[in-house]
Design a protein around this nucleic acid. Structure first.
Lengths: 150, 150
DNA sequence: ACTCCAGTTGAGAACGGTTCTCAACAGTGT
DNA sequence: ACACTGTTGAGAACCGTTCTCAACTGGAGT
C-alpha cells in the first residue's frame, strides 16, 4: 500500500536540515526500508556488521531517524521493540505476530472522533496516540494450517 | 472511572489458579494499584526495597501479574516502559505526558469496526490491538500556564 | 505440634542491550 | 593542500534484567 521512501528522498530530508547523509546512514535506512517486516536494532546491527557499520552507529542512526520521523517504533507479538519504515503521513501498523510483516493503514479518522470525546470528558489536551493492531498474515495462517492444523 | 481492584479481589484470582498470594505480591500489587500514575519497575523496586521486597521479586511479580492480565504495560511520553493497574475489562489508557497520570477508557467499539475493515482488506486474522492516547492532564496544563505561560 | 515438601524469596553474580569515550576519519568550504 | 566540524568504530562502561542457589515460608499430612 505505502512503499518505503527511496533513499534519495530521505537524503533530501537530511539535506534540508543540513544533516549529512553518510554511507552508513544510507545502509541503515536501506536495511529498514528494504524489509517488509519490523526489525530490531540488533538485527540491523548484525546484518550490517559485515558491511563496515559499527553497532554504535546503528543505535545512533536509528535514534536519529526516529527523531526525524522517518522510522517508527513498534512492538512485535512478544513485546520486542522493533522499527519500521516509513511512518510518513501518520499511518498505523498492522503487524503479523508470527513473521512481523507489517501492513500500514490510516486509522486516524476512527481515532480522531474518540479523541474528541475523551478531550471533552476528561479535560486532557490530547496531542497524540499510538495504535497498533496485531494479527496473523495470510501466508502465516496457511503455513500454520499446513503445519499442524492448530 | 475504573478504580483499582482491592487486594482481596486479586487474591481471589490467585487462589482460583492455585497460585500463592504472598506478602510480597500483595505489596507489589498495592504499589501499582495505589498509584494513579503509570510506574516503572525500577520505581516499584526502589519504593519497596526498604519494606523487605527484593528487586528480583519485583521483576518476577510484575511478569506474573502481567501474565495474569492484572497489569498492563504502557509507554510514557518519553517512551519509557511503565505499568498500570487494572487493565481488567480491556480498557485503554489516556496518559498524561507530564505526570503519567492515567485515565482509562473503553474505545473498543471504535477499534472493532476498523479491525473488521482491515481483516477484510488484508486477509489478516486479527487477534488484538494496542491503543494508547497521550495528552496533558488538566492540572499539568494549569501548572504549565502558571509556570511560564508556554 | 511436628515434619515434609513444593514453591517463593533475596543477595549477589552474570548477562546482554545500550550508551559513552576518544582517537581516527570523511566531507565541505576556503 | 589545509583547517574545521561532525561522524564513525572499537571497546569500555553502564545499567536494567535475569539467573543461581541457599534459606525461608506456608500448607498438607501425620
Amino acid at each position: 500500500m505505502t512503499d518505503p521512501q527511496p533513499a534519495h528522498e530521505i537524503e533530501a530530508v537530511f539535506r534540508q536540515k543540513g544533516i549529512p547523509f553518510t554511507r552508513q546512514r544510507r545502509q541503515i535506512w536501506d536495511f529498514f526500508a528494504g524489509a517488509d517486516r519490523a526489525a530490531t536494532i540488533t538485527e540491523a546491527a548484525d546484518a550490517l556488521r559485515g558491511e563496515g557499520v559499527g553497532q554504535a552507529t546503528v543505535y545512533r542512526t536509528v535514534q536519529l531517524l526516529s527523531d526525524l520521523g522517518l522510522l517508527a517504533r513498534v512492538q512485535d507479538g512478544r513485546g520486542e521493540i522493533c522499527f519500521i519504515a516509513p511512518p510518513i503521513g501518520h499511518s498505523h501498523p498492522l503487524i503479523c505476530g508470527v513473521c512481523r510483516r507489517v501492513v500500514r493503514f490510516d486509522g486516524d479518522g476512527d481515532v480522531a472522533e474518540l479523541e474528541a470525546r475523551l478531550a471533552e470528558a476528561t479535560g486532557f489536551a490530547i496531542y497524540g496516540h499510538h495504535l497498533e493492531i496485531y494479527g496473523i498474515c495470510p501466508s502465516c495462517r496457511a503455513a500454520k494450517e499446513g503445519d499442524h492444523g492448530e
